[in-house]
């Protein structure tokens, strides 16, 4: 079975291969997902067996409103290449308005990032509901491709 599978790789996996940087330098992404919508959406992607690149690792928070800008800067400082923040759609927040607070903070932080020389495209905020498994998988695919185009996180490279 394994032999058969490797002779005929599915189209989308070929696509990932072509985009992957040289060995030893995989793109490293983290995603903060709120428990009620986006984490459930990521679970639904799994239940639906939607395949997406394995570069992303999810950190669960109860609400995107919990996320401190410092966490995100810390991630870039450590060498994370891209950070995805996923929350409930505006109006759906389980905590009424935590996602609105997150949106304000992240937009402010993006401005700051550009000022201090971290490409703000490395940080992306997306709304993913519990029924949007496909949206979650697509978002990860798209984000990974975008970060690959930007290359590895230079702040980290400069440090090391």
């Amino acid at each position: 079975m394994a032999g058969e599978a490797s002779t005929k790789p599915p189209a989308d996996s070929e696509h990932h291969e072509a985009q992957t940087p040289p060995p030893g330098e995989p793109i490293n992404l983290i995603a903060f997902c709120c428990n009620w919508c986006s984490y459930a959406g990521a679970d639904l992607a799994g239940v639906s067996r939607l395949q997406y690149p394995p570069n992303v690792k999810i950190i669960r928070v109860m609400c995107t409103g919990r996320i401190e800008p410092e966490f995100l800067l810390h991630a870039f400082e450590l060498g994370i290449d891209g950070v995805l923040v996923c929350g409930c759609h505006i109006g759906d927040c389980h905590y009424i308005s935590g996602n609105e607070k997150a949106e304000v903070r992240i937009n402010t932080l993006k401005k700051l990032m550009d000022m201090i020389g971290i490409d703000s495209r490395r940080l992306r905020l997306e709304w993913v509901s519990a029924s949007e498994g496909t949206r979650f998988a697509e978002t990860v695919k798209d984000f990974k491709e975008q970060i690959e185009k930007l290359g590895k996180n230079k702040i980290y490279i400069a440090q090391s």
Binding site: A5, P9, G46
Partner: peptide, 9 residues
């Protein structure tokens, strides 16, 4: 849900 099922290949 967030690993084996989404990276089956």
């Amino acid at each position: 849900d967030q690993c084996s099922w989404v990276h089956m290949k």
